[in-house]
Design a protein around this nucleic acid. Structure first.
Lengths: 131, 131
DNA sequence: GTGCCACCTCAAGTAACTTGAGGTTCAAGG
DNA sequence: CCTTGAACCTCAAGTTACTTGAGGTGGCAC
Protein backbone atom coordinates (compact mmCIF):
# COMPACT_ATOMS: atom_id res chain seq x y z
CA UNK A 1 0.00 0.00 0.00
CA UNK A 2 1.53 3.27 -1.08
CA UNK A 3 0.78 6.84 -2.12
CA UNK A 4 0.38 8.31 -5.58
CA UNK A 5 3.83 9.84 -5.36
CA UNK A 6 5.48 6.49 -4.76
CA UNK A 7 3.39 4.86 -7.46
CA UNK A 8 4.35 7.52 -9.97
CA UNK A 9 8.05 7.24 -9.17
CA UNK A 10 7.98 3.48 -9.55
CA UNK A 11 6.31 3.76 -12.94
CA UNK A 12 8.51 6.63 -14.06
CA UNK A 13 5.68 8.99 -14.62
CA UNK A 14 4.30 12.18 -13.15
CA UNK A 15 1.71 12.36 -10.38
CA UNK A 16 -0.76 14.41 -12.47
CA UNK A 17 -0.43 11.84 -15.24
CA UNK A 18 -1.64 9.11 -12.89
CA UNK A 19 -4.64 11.22 -11.93
CA UNK A 20 -5.22 11.90 -15.60
CA UNK A 21 -5.27 8.17 -16.37
CA UNK A 22 -7.80 7.69 -13.62
CA UNK A 23 -9.97 10.47 -15.01
CA UNK A 24 -9.78 8.88 -18.46
CA UNK A 25 -10.75 5.49 -17.12
CA UNK A 26 -7.43 3.77 -17.75
CA UNK A 27 -6.75 3.35 -14.07
CA UNK A 28 -9.63 2.32 -11.80
CA UNK A 29 -10.86 4.93 -9.31
CA UNK A 30 -8.33 4.65 -6.51
CA UNK A 31 -9.26 3.84 -2.92
CA UNK A 32 -8.99 6.82 -0.62
CA UNK A 33 -7.86 7.44 2.92
CA UNK A 34 -9.87 9.44 5.42
CA UNK A 35 -8.42 12.69 4.18
CA UNK A 36 -9.04 11.91 0.53
CA UNK A 37 -5.52 10.85 -0.44
CA UNK A 38 -5.34 8.04 -2.99
CA UNK A 39 -3.94 4.68 -1.92
CA UNK A 40 -2.49 2.10 -4.29
CA UNK A 41 -1.38 -1.51 -4.21
CA UNK A 42 0.74 -3.87 -6.26
CA UNK A 43 -1.88 -4.54 -8.98
CA UNK A 44 -2.22 -0.81 -9.58
CA UNK A 45 1.50 -0.55 -10.15
CA UNK A 46 1.38 -3.46 -12.59
CA UNK A 47 -1.41 -1.82 -14.50
CA UNK A 48 0.28 1.55 -14.61
CA UNK A 49 3.53 0.01 -15.77
CA UNK A 50 1.67 -1.70 -18.58
CA UNK A 51 0.07 1.57 -19.61
CA UNK A 52 3.43 3.31 -19.65
CA UNK A 53 5.06 0.57 -21.66
CA UNK A 54 2.38 0.81 -24.28
CA UNK A 55 2.59 4.59 -24.29
CA UNK A 56 6.31 4.29 -24.96
CA UNK A 57 5.22 2.51 -28.12
CA UNK A 58 2.95 5.45 -28.92
CA UNK A 59 -0.14 3.33 -28.56
CA UNK A 60 -2.89 5.91 -28.08
CA UNK A 61 -4.83 5.98 -24.83
CA UNK A 62 -8.11 4.78 -26.21
CA UNK A 63 -6.45 1.76 -27.77
CA UNK A 64 -4.81 0.95 -24.46
CA UNK A 65 -8.13 1.40 -22.76
CA UNK A 66 -9.86 -0.98 -25.14
CA UNK A 67 -7.07 -3.47 -24.66
CA UNK A 68 -7.27 -3.33 -20.89
CA UNK A 69 -11.01 -3.75 -20.99
CA UNK A 70 -10.60 -6.74 -23.29
CA UNK A 71 -8.28 -8.26 -20.74
CA UNK A 72 -10.62 -7.56 -17.87
CA UNK A 73 -13.33 -9.45 -19.65
CA UNK A 74 -11.05 -12.49 -19.41
CA UNK A 75 -10.85 -12.84 -23.16
CA UNK A 76 -8.82 -15.73 -24.47
CA UNK A 77 -5.21 -15.43 -25.47
CA UNK A 78 -5.85 -15.09 -29.17
CA UNK A 79 -6.80 -11.44 -29.00
CA UNK A 80 -4.07 -10.60 -26.57
CA UNK A 81 -1.53 -12.34 -28.74
CA UNK A 82 -2.78 -10.50 -31.80
CA UNK A 83 -2.46 -7.19 -30.02
CA UNK A 84 1.08 -7.92 -28.94
CA UNK A 85 2.03 -9.11 -32.39
CA UNK A 86 0.73 -5.86 -33.80
CA UNK A 87 2.92 -3.92 -31.40
CA UNK A 88 5.93 -6.01 -32.34
CA UNK A 89 5.37 -5.28 -36.01
CA UNK A 90 5.12 -1.59 -35.24
CA UNK A 91 8.36 -1.80 -33.29
CA UNK A 92 10.15 -3.49 -36.15
CA UNK A 93 9.02 -0.83 -38.56
CA UNK A 94 10.12 1.96 -36.31
CA UNK A 95 13.52 0.44 -35.76
CA UNK A 96 13.99 0.22 -39.50
CA UNK A 97 12.95 3.82 -40.00
CA UNK A 98 15.33 4.93 -37.28
CA UNK A 99 18.19 2.99 -38.83
CA UNK A 100 17.45 4.69 -42.15
CA UNK A 101 17.62 8.06 -40.52
CA UNK A 102 20.82 7.17 -38.75
CA UNK A 103 22.38 6.14 -42.02
CA UNK A 104 21.53 9.36 -43.77
CA UNK A 105 22.76 11.35 -40.82
CA UNK A 106 26.06 9.52 -40.84
CA UNK A 107 26.46 10.00 -44.58
CA UNK A 108 25.89 13.67 -44.17
CA UNK A 109 28.37 13.92 -41.37
CA UNK A 110 31.03 12.21 -43.43
CA UNK A 111 30.31 14.63 -46.23
CA UNK A 112 30.50 17.52 -43.93
CA UNK A 113 33.72 16.49 -42.30
CA UNK A 114 35.59 16.06 -45.55
CA UNK A 115 34.05 19.02 -47.32
CA UNK A 116 33.91 21.70 -44.70
CA UNK A 117 36.71 21.24 -42.24
CA UNK A 118 39.47 23.10 -44.04
CA UNK A 119 37.52 26.30 -44.39
CA UNK A 120 34.97 27.28 -41.75
CA UNK A 121 32.33 27.02 -44.45
CA UNK A 122 28.76 26.11 -43.66
CA UNK A 123 27.52 22.60 -44.33
CA UNK A 124 25.26 21.81 -47.23
CA UNK A 125 22.40 21.11 -44.95
CA UNK A 126 19.48 20.54 -47.26
CA UNK A 127 21.32 18.16 -49.52
CA UNK A 128 21.98 15.99 -46.53
CA UNK A 129 18.65 14.67 -45.49
CA UNK A 130 16.46 15.41 -48.41
CA UNK A 131 17.75 12.89 -50.92
CA UNK B 1 7.80 25.46 -59.57
CA UNK B 2 4.83 23.68 -58.05
CA UNK B 3 1.79 24.10 -55.82
CA UNK B 4 1.40 23.45 -52.11
CA UNK B 5 -0.45 20.22 -52.85
CA UNK B 6 2.44 18.82 -54.86
CA UNK B 7 4.96 20.00 -52.30
CA UNK B 8 3.04 18.34 -49.49
CA UNK B 9 2.73 15.06 -51.37
CA UNK B 10 6.45 15.00 -52.13
CA UNK B 11 7.31 15.56 -48.49
CA UNK B 12 4.70 13.13 -47.22
CA UNK B 13 2.85 15.67 -45.19
CA UNK B 14 -0.48 17.43 -45.19
CA UNK B 15 -1.20 20.73 -46.92
CA UNK B 16 -2.34 22.46 -43.71
CA UNK B 17 0.86 21.29 -42.05
CA UNK B 18 2.92 23.16 -44.65
CA UNK B 19 0.91 26.32 -44.03
CA UNK B 20 1.36 25.76 -40.32
CA UNK B 21 5.14 25.55 -40.71
CA UNK B 22 5.07 28.80 -42.62
CA UNK B 23 3.00 30.46 -39.91
CA UNK B 24 5.49 29.24 -37.30
CA UNK B 25 8.42 30.56 -39.26
CA UNK B 26 9.94 27.19 -40.15
CA UNK B 27 9.22 27.66 -43.82
CA UNK B 28 9.81 31.09 -45.37
CA UNK B 29 6.71 33.02 -46.50
CA UNK B 30 5.97 31.46 -49.86
CA UNK B 31 5.80 33.42 -53.09
CA UNK B 32 2.28 33.88 -54.38
CA UNK B 33 0.59 33.84 -57.76
CA UNK B 34 -1.85 36.51 -58.86
CA UNK B 35 -4.72 34.75 -57.20
CA UNK B 36 -2.91 34.27 -53.91
CA UNK B 37 -1.92 30.63 -54.35
CA UNK B 38 1.46 29.68 -52.93
CA UNK B 39 4.23 28.67 -55.30
CA UNK B 40 7.22 26.54 -54.32
CA UNK B 41 10.55 25.50 -55.78
CA UNK B 42 13.19 22.85 -55.22
CA UNK B 43 14.84 24.55 -52.19
CA UNK B 44 11.50 24.71 -50.44
CA UNK B 45 11.07 20.99 -50.92
CA UNK B 46 14.55 20.36 -49.55
CA UNK B 47 13.79 22.45 -46.50
CA UNK B 48 10.45 20.80 -45.88
CA UNK B 49 11.97 17.34 -46.22
CA UNK B 50 14.56 18.28 -43.64
CA UNK B 51 11.89 19.49 -41.27
CA UNK B 52 9.92 16.27 -41.68
CA UNK B 53 12.95 14.10 -41.15
CA UNK B 54 13.75 15.87 -37.92
CA UNK B 55 10.12 15.67 -36.83
CA UNK B 56 10.26 11.92 -37.38
CA UNK B 57 12.98 11.99 -34.75
CA UNK B 58 10.62 13.93 -32.46
CA UNK B 59 12.81 16.98 -32.55
CA UNK B 60 10.46 19.75 -31.41
CA UNK B 61 9.65 22.57 -33.80
CA UNK B 62 11.49 25.28 -31.96
CA UNK B 63 14.66 23.22 -31.94
CA UNK B 64 14.34 22.67 -35.66
CA UNK B 65 13.72 26.35 -36.11
CA UNK B 66 16.81 27.27 -34.16
CA UNK B 67 18.80 24.77 -36.15
CA UNK B 68 17.61 26.12 -39.49
CA UNK B 69 18.37 29.65 -38.43
CA UNK B 70 21.84 28.56 -37.35
CA UNK B 71 22.35 27.14 -40.81
CA UNK B 72 21.05 30.24 -42.51
CA UNK B 73 23.60 32.27 -40.66
CA UNK B 74 26.23 30.19 -42.44
CA UNK B 75 27.62 28.86 -39.18
CA UNK B 76 30.58 26.52 -39.43
CA UNK B 77 30.25 22.79 -39.51
CA UNK B 78 31.08 22.24 -35.86
CA UNK B 79 27.62 23.20 -34.64
CA UNK B 80 25.86 21.36 -37.40
CA UNK B 81 27.91 18.25 -36.72
CA UNK B 82 27.17 18.50 -33.02
CA UNK B 83 23.47 18.74 -33.73
CA UNK B 84 23.52 15.71 -35.98
CA UNK B 85 25.56 13.73 -33.50
CA UNK B 86 23.00 14.53 -30.83
CA UNK B 87 20.25 13.18 -33.07
CA UNK B 88 22.23 10.03 -33.75
CA UNK B 89 22.68 9.43 -30.03
CA UNK B 90 18.98 9.88 -29.52
CA UNK B 91 18.29 7.40 -32.32
CA UNK B 92 20.59 4.83 -30.78
CA UNK B 93 18.87 5.15 -27.43
CA UNK B 94 15.45 4.78 -28.93
CA UNK B 95 16.43 1.72 -30.91
CA UNK B 96 17.71 0.11 -27.73
CA UNK B 97 14.54 0.93 -25.85
CA UNK B 98 12.45 -0.51 -28.66
CA UNK B 99 14.49 -3.69 -28.71
CA UNK B 100 13.95 -4.04 -24.98
CA UNK B 101 10.25 -3.73 -25.45
CA UNK B 102 10.27 -6.21 -28.27
CA UNK B 103 12.09 -8.69 -26.10
CA UNK B 104 9.62 -8.45 -23.26
CA UNK B 105 6.72 -8.73 -25.68
CA UNK B 106 8.17 -11.86 -27.20
CA UNK B 107 8.79 -13.40 -23.80
CA UNK B 108 5.24 -12.76 -22.85
CA UNK B 109 3.92 -14.24 -26.02
CA UNK B 110 5.92 -17.41 -25.50
CA UNK B 111 4.54 -17.60 -21.97
CA UNK B 112 1.07 -17.08 -23.19
CA UNK B 113 1.24 -19.63 -25.93
CA UNK B 114 2.43 -22.40 -23.66
CA UNK B 115 0.28 -21.49 -20.67
CA UNK B 116 -3.04 -20.60 -22.19
CA UNK B 117 -3.59 -22.54 -25.35
CA UNK B 118 -5.20 -25.70 -23.90
CA UNK B 119 -7.94 -23.86 -22.06
CA UNK B 120 -9.33 -20.60 -23.45
CA UNK B 121 -8.06 -18.93 -20.32
CA UNK B 122 -7.04 -15.31 -20.28
CA UNK B 123 -3.39 -14.34 -20.36
CA UNK B 124 -1.62 -13.00 -17.32
CA UNK B 125 -1.34 -9.60 -18.82
CA UNK B 126 0.14 -7.48 -16.09
CA UNK B 127 2.87 -9.90 -15.24
CA UNK B 128 4.01 -9.72 -18.82
CA UNK B 129 5.23 -6.22 -19.25
CA UNK B 130 5.59 -4.98 -15.76
CA UNK B 131 8.57 -7.00 -14.56
C1' DG C 1 -19.62 29.57 -68.95
C1' DT C 2 -20.03 26.26 -65.79
C1' DG C 3 -18.40 22.60 -63.22
C1' DC C 4 -15.18 21.05 -60.02
C1' DC C 5 -11.05 20.51 -57.62
C1' DA C 6 -7.40 22.71 -55.33
C1' DC C 7 -6.52 26.63 -53.09
C1' DC C 8 -7.35 30.60 -49.56
C1' DT C 9 -8.17 32.37 -44.41
C1' DC C 10 -9.60 31.99 -39.85
C1' DA C 11 -11.46 29.61 -35.90
C1' DA C 12 -12.05 25.72 -33.24
C1' DG C 13 -10.97 20.95 -32.02
C1' DT C 14 -7.68 17.05 -30.58
C1' DA C 15 -4.29 14.11 -27.77
C1' DA C 16 -1.86 13.65 -23.84
C1' DC C 17 -0.31 15.75 -20.79
C1' DT C 18 1.75 19.89 -17.87
C1' DT C 19 1.39 23.96 -15.11
C1' DG C 20 -0.81 26.99 -11.93
C1' DA C 21 -3.90 28.60 -8.31
C1' DG C 22 -5.72 27.94 -4.08
C1' DG C 23 -6.54 24.99 -0.49
C1' DT C 24 -6.18 20.40 2.76
C1' DT C 25 -3.69 16.35 5.00
C1' DC C 26 -0.18 14.00 7.12
C1' DA C 27 4.14 12.76 9.57
C1' DA C 28 7.97 14.61 12.07
C1' DG C 29 10.17 17.61 15.26
C1' DG C 30 10.02 20.85 19.15
C1' DC D 1 -0.08 19.50 21.65
C1' DC D 2 1.27 22.38 18.05
C1' DT D 3 3.38 23.78 14.03
C1' DT D 4 5.76 23.38 9.80
C1' DG D 5 6.81 21.65 5.35
C1' DA D 6 6.25 18.25 1.97
C1' DA D 7 2.89 15.80 -0.39
C1' DC D 8 -1.65 15.59 -1.44
C1' DC D 9 -6.39 17.44 -3.26
C1' DT D 10 -9.50 19.77 -7.17
C1' DC D 11 -10.34 22.49 -11.03
C1' DA D 12 -9.04 25.45 -14.82
C1' DA D 13 -6.05 26.88 -18.27
C1' DG D 14 -1.89 26.27 -21.11
C1' DT D 15 1.15 23.52 -24.42
C1' DT D 16 2.65 21.14 -28.82
C1' DA D 17 1.86 19.98 -33.31
C1' DC D 18 -1.16 19.53 -35.80
C1' DT D 19 -6.19 18.38 -37.92
C1' DT D 20 -10.86 19.59 -39.09
C1' DG D 21 -14.47 22.61 -40.43
C1' DA D 22 -16.78 26.68 -42.34
C1' DG D 23 -17.21 29.72 -45.82
C1' DG D 24 -15.30 31.57 -49.75
C1' DT D 25 -11.91 32.28 -54.32
C1' DG D 26 -8.74 30.63 -58.31
C1' DG D 27 -7.75 28.04 -62.29
C1' DC D 28 -8.46 24.96 -65.85
C1' DA D 29 -11.31 21.49 -68.77
C1' DC D 30 -15.05 20.80 -71.42
Amino acid sequence: MFTIGVLARRAQCSVPAVRFYEAQGLMPPAERREGGHRVYGRPDLARLLLIRRLRDLDVPLDRIKAFLKLDEGGKPCAETLAFFQEQRDAIRQRIEALRDLDLSLSLHMANCQSGCLPAAKACDLYGALST
